[in-house]
Nucleic acid binder design. Structure first.
Lengths: 350, 350
DNA sequence: AATATTTACGCAATCCATTGCGTAGAAGTC
DNA sequence: GACTTCTACGCAATGGATTGCGTAAATATT
């Protein structure tokens, strides 16, 4: 029952002329008389004519559509990234095809392949934690289609990347813990398959090294991002003979899941254990105690990814030289790492 | 530099046959010899041939794409709705075009119009708070294209709706406050232009009426969803001579913004003022005090919206009879409305 | 007056897959 | 031998917009 869309042919028939004349009249081609142009344009605007985008896509092999694949958007981080992507895309006249991988490699492969079959002009992706193979991504690069990694990337795939500054974010967080007197700092790290777990771990280790605190393997545990794993991690840490006095968590979700366990154990935050996490949720200001966080530039990551895509579109040879943009993080110190009295007293160090 | 996609013509040329024979061979048409079918299919799978979706779209006027327009996804609710939509669409072999209106009517009109020009098979939308005119939506219905409202709707537009049970959610929240002894219950309501503000207000009023508590106009304030407005609302309420002892907020964002103001004023939650809000964030369990919430079936709203779309696709005459699905909400009682001691003592009433 | 140039338009191919129709040759029927 | 039927394929149109090329007619040039 769909009403057929208005076409050039309809206009041509109405005016007793040819399709090509109508087309050229609308594009202000020099070989069309002013009177004809007026007739065509009048009718087109009266009938609210718009060229059929599907026909244009077929003709130009251009879709004004960017594919986006993220693992989830239930947590705050990727939903803000999506807002950045949508705003930038919208401004540039592009549409966004939105897909979830749910951290499952097979689903990621499926959505990438269906997206790829010529409906999109480029792909922005945060690979799943399972993404160790990457034929489905190589395939995009081989086609010469713009591919932009956000937040996470596959080392072996030669494509542009827009990342948060995980290393320095982590470094400054741990240094903050050290400067506020913590001696035994643990790290609940992300999955080793995720590209951003490593720089966060390195930042942690280097901050310790700078302050001559020996790293202790017991204090580094890896979480696979499930709740069970998070609980397991914290239990291992608070089961140690020598308890940690500070913990850096890979993300906010882990922090939220483990902090109650620590509280129930009777340990006081921040007095006995300080917490810092990578996190973006504004609600964080309302939890008790408020979580000290490394804030990631989520919106800008999305925005910049679209810009990189647009640059790459514009430049034929761009694909040969992938770019990496690393956007600064920001440490916001709150009650989970420093007693609020101290906070109010202005203990905030640079 | 984009590699040209493989076409029927390529296969036909390789096998010295015609495009139509290749097409029919791939579709197992009866008029093609088994030998030819084998040759074609072998080559097609060797070359990993896939029909060009754009050409199919043009031919069939079908896109396997659903447009989705929501005001934002930074807050938890719509991002969960989006997850429901994406899962259901993915399962049905559909793609999702994702757009934000940012609560701005003009932007909503723009994205709807660009989506509409024949790239999508249907539209799922949560109208912006500014959406009082609706030509851009009528236009969809007139075309016979499936249109599904989620969470909010335009009264005058004859389209299907998938909504949370705002009325009963609100009613049970207010009744809970009454049953736990509150006498003077306020409501920070949503914008009057939003379709779900009204049933939430009605639920509030009817719960009061049922328990013979007179409604007091002073206790009903409308928030336009900006932070400034939320602060203004709470200031009006706590500036009253007779303070409210319970507050129902239109959404979680308002609750988070106003609870600190109440605390700063030295008022104790829940002892002096109880709070209940419509909200979904899992993090809510970590704020202090934990917010009693009416949980909306966000994921299911998204899922059901896609199902309604699919039904409507399947049935030619469906558009004539729009459906409304109202999905149940759930009241979860936490510390913001009842002292935790009481909670633990099992005060939870049915 | 004859040729060159400009004006103003239409035809047909292009992108790609699908499909109604036509047609060749082979096989079968009376 | 003349007819129908079946097999196996190709042609061309379809969907919609664009564009190179061709071609009338109307001016301009010499």
């Amino acid at each position: 029952m769909l009403y057929r869309q208005l076409t050039l042919k309809d206009i041509a028939k109405e005016l007793n002329t040819s399709v090509s004349t109508v087309s050229r009249a609308l594009k202000d081609h020099h070989s069309i008389s002013p009177e004809m142009k007026k007739k065509v344009n009048d009718l087109a605007s009266r009938w609210d004519y718009h060229p059929n985008p599907t026909a244009l896509s077929l003709l130009k092999n251009k879709h004004y559509t960017i594919g986006v694949v993220v693992p989830e958007i239930a947590q705050n981080y990727f939903s803000i990234v999506m807002e950045g992507i949508e705003d930038a895309a919208n401004q540039a006249g592009y549409h966004v095809m939105f897909c979830l991988s749910k951290e499952i490699l097979q689903r990621e492969i499926n959505v990438v392949n269906t997206l790829l079959n010529n409906r999109i002009d480029g792909l922005i992706i945060a690979p799943s934690k399972e993404t160790v193979s990457h034929e489905h991504l190589d395939c995009i690069v081989n086609r010469g289609m713009p591919l932009i990694f956000i937040d996470r990337y596959c080392e072996a795939v030669p494509a542009s990347r827009v990342l948060g500054d995980d290393y320095n974010g982590s470094f400054s967080a741990v240094e903050h813990l050290i400067l506020t007197g913590r001696k035994r700092i643990a790290h609940i790290a992300g999955p080793e398959t995720l590209s951003n777990s490593n720089p966060r771990l390195s930042g942690y280790l280097d901050a310790l090294k700078k302050h001559r605190i020996p790293a202790d393997k017991e204090l580094i545990v890896h979480c696979d991002l499930t709740q069970a794993s998070a609980i397991d991690c914290i239990n291992r840490l608070i089961g140690l003979k020598k308890l940690p006095d500070g913990i850096l968590t890979y993300n906010s979700s882990i922090a939220f899941q483990v902090m109650p366990v620590v509280k129930e154990k009777g340990l006081k935050i921040p007095e006995q254990i300080a917490f810092v996490g990578f996190a973006n949720e504004p609600i964080i200001s309302y939890i008790e105690p408020q979580l000290t966080t490394v804030i990631q530039p989520a919106y800008d990551i999305g925005w910049e990814a679209v810009n990189l895509f647009l640059d790459q579109q514009a430049d034929e040879d761009y694909a040969a030289t992938p770019k990496t943009k690393i956007l600064p993080t920001q440490l916001v110190i709150r009650g989970s790492s420093v007693k609020s009295s101290a906070l109010h007293a202005g203990l905030r160090h640079a």
